[in-house]
């Protein structure tokens, strides 16, 4: 199988890779670019552990082909902290113990960031419905929802 050359931007950095036509963006990120923050929990778009944004839109990277990244802007969990400075969502997840095993955490952080960019002041119900596509089996979601709401308040305060 011949490979396709793709030029894209990942977390603000111009990136090139070769991939096969049937390779998912998740496989490219993890296996070709060694960005293993996105996780494969299901491979069918049901769990959200592989969430990234593609041109600002939240996607399950297991349902996107690598070749679709051509010319796109992609952000992953690795792009959330700026230098040594954690994103307020990351900080609140730490402060409020909103993670246990942590395997769903990258996807939830990316999804929550996408929410707060659209809606800086979500209700608890809006957060719960927005994150309904991100499965967490450890926490029962309680502390996750509280951390997202606290980060939203922080971000509003800083704005």
């Amino acid at each position: 199988m011949s490979k396709t050359h793709v030029t894209t931007t990942i977390n603000g950095t111009r990136t090139e890779f070769l991939c096969e036509a049937n390779e998912t963006l998740l496989t490219v990120l993890r296996d070709r670019l060694h960005l293993t923050g996105a996780k494969e929990g299901c491979g069918s778009g049901d769990c959200g552990a592989c969430s990234v944004t593609l041109n600002g839109r939240l996607v399950a990277s297991c349902l996107v082909l690598g070749v679709e990244a051509e010319g796109a802007e992609i952000t992953t969990v690795e792009g959330m902290a700026e230098g040594g400075e954690l994103h307020p969502l990351q900080q609140k997840f730490l402060d409020l113990a909103a993670l246990q095993c942590g395997v769903c955490t990258p996807g939830i952080l990316v999804a929550a960031k996408a929410l707060l960019e659209k809606n800086p002041d979500p209700s608890e119900q809006e957060v719960r419905y927005w994150l309904a596509g991100n499965l967490c089996r450890c926490t029962g979601y309680d502390k996750i929802i509280k951390a997202v709401l606290a980060a939203a308040a922080d971000l509003r305060g800083a704005a």
Binding site: T36, V77, E78, L86, F93, L94, G102, T105, P106
Partner: peptide, 10 residues
């Protein structure tokens, strides 16, 4: 938690 930072940064 000490493992937290690694888990929120990927």
């Amino acid at each position: 938690r000490p493992d937290g930072i690694d888990k929120v940064t990927g």
